[in-house]
Design a protein around this nucleic acid. Sequence first.
DNA 1: ATGAAAGCGCTAACAC
DNA 2: GTGTTAGCGCTTTCAT
Lengths: 336, 336
Amino acid sequence: MVKITDVARRAGVSPSTVSYALSRKRPISEETRQRVEAAVRELGYRPHAGARALGGSRSNVLALVVPLRAGIDVPVVMRFAVSVVTAARGHDHDVLLLTQEEGEEGLRRVADTALVDALILMDVQLRDPRLPLLRSLGRPSVMIGFPSEATGLTCIDLDFRAAGEACVEHLAGLGHRVVALVGSPPEVYVRGTAFAQRVVQGFTGAADRAGLASAVHPCEATPAAARRVAERLLREQPALTGVVVHNEAVLEPLVDAFARLGLRVPGDLSITAICPDALAEGLRVPVTSIALPAAEVGARAVELLMRKLAGEEVPEATLLPPRLTRRASTGPRALA
Amino acid sequence: MVKITDVARRAGVSPSTVSYALSRKRPISEETRQRVEAAVRELGYRPHAGARALGGSRSNVLALVVPLRAGIDVPVVMRFAVSVVTAARGHDHDVLLLTQEEGEEGLRRVADTALVDALILMDVQLRDPRLPLLRSLGRPSVMIGFPSEATGLTCIDLDFRAAGEACVEHLAGLGHRVVALVGSPPEVYVRGTAFAQRVVQGFTGAADRAGLASAVHPCEATPAAARRVAERLLREQPALTGVVVHNEAVLEPLVDAFARLGLRVPGDLSITAICPDALAEGLRVPVTSIALPAAEVGARAVELLMRKLAGEEVPEATLLPPRLTRRASTGPRALA
DNA sequence: ATGAAAGCGCTAACAC
DNA sequence: GTGTTAGCGCTTTCAT
């Protein structure tokens, strides 16, 4: 293994100079830096991660806690994970994967052993039991999602409440008077998963303010459940003409189910969704949707963490404004 | 931060005794071990990961390279990842997440910096460019999947060829004479992804041996593509009565498409799949399937790695035999 | 602008 | 069965 002293010898400088030349933590003459860098290249030097962590008290590793619980859409989780890894690499950090099952003990372990410098959490619940731990961990963290009370912590996410509102307002603007929200699986609400709750709040609030009749239906992530919800919707709200879908897994089956029930989209029914753009675009009838900007959220979560690691103050809350893209699935309410 | 010397002082022993008491790398009297463990608990001691890696030349971290390429089913990838993380934790290891995009440079980096002790690779291709690198990396690795030539390396996977064969034999045993394979998306074959190719080989070989007429159809991972394939199948093989599906994403849409084309399952058409049991069970018509044992593969991959880290010899190839579960989707061929 | 040297916290070889 | 001690390879004062 080639070590810093090898590089130093080759470049004709001291080890500390090599260290500083690479970290740029103190001025090094252009000429020596060139020599050091040449030596690094020639020898294929790679600093030993453990030694670096021990000497410098920075491991350059982030922990990412991913949810794997019922009702969470796996492809969406993966999109976040990939964007976090990619962004982290852009800041010379690697990502350690933790599963939610490891729980608080897992967080404590990787923090206390200095395996990681900082943590990113997904699938935050409104009253998340991990919050006190995060506050006392002594390492920066960022949550993707908003608990109800997050003083002293850092959160980032799409503004799901505004997203729910925007969907309703879009439908209201098209003249629709009776709307429904097809939401996440019931267990997601039971657990108090933050983003799902906020969509409901936004949806209901906006509907009330606009004087629309509205209803909310949780929905399992199966096509069969989608069909049942479609039938129930028409039975319970015969005048329904606008639907908001916040459930990636059932968007397509739901659209199919409506079609099979003889409803034209957008002729009889306008549909909007909150989901990744790729999903909304790819359907037979492209769906008007609010993008779920996983890549942006992941990248900005990492950036926030980097700034915290650098000792900067960062805002406690970062809410990304919803961006609605009109597609073929929404249109003006048909005259009766 | 509480360190090993703190524990030593508290327990009234030397630091090395603490180290040995915890690692059990040399005999320690029952009594002192008790004292040490008590001290550890009282002080909440956690060994510093970096120091451990530096002193012991073991980081207790594994690298997992996950594929994120077109045509790969994300939920399946996630199942593997989770099983690897879980198994690794069972051996006191953590998992560093690498994306395929990082490529060979990423592998070299985490190995050379001693960030990880060993590596697990998914999505292996028949002629995988990473093989020479793996051989020269100086760290143990395990591939989930089989390249065509893997001398000196370690591979594990479901025996996909046998899986393809077993599906055909099951159908042949039920009297079917004309069969088709609906496979992975075309790009998967173009890349030479090992497991997909092997299914084709097994399928075709078994069909030939049994004297069945057979055809293979790659299929994009979209419901629309599934519908097109269904139609094409009936057009090109009018006598078709047996279908093997090796494509998680289209299994359900395909079954639906056949239904909409007026075909009864299993009355007119028998269907078998190679996919996770949960998927096959959950459909409206539960599908006879060969399980994709992600949890077992992940766990055994980790075990192989642990044994290699311990200096043991392990078999180069571990092929898990396919396990076929009969469900409602297959039955005897109807008499014409 | 550079160098010398003292740690960082742990493991393991070497005593006893 | 336990203690002493010399590293592991890097970062970072403290000198110059």
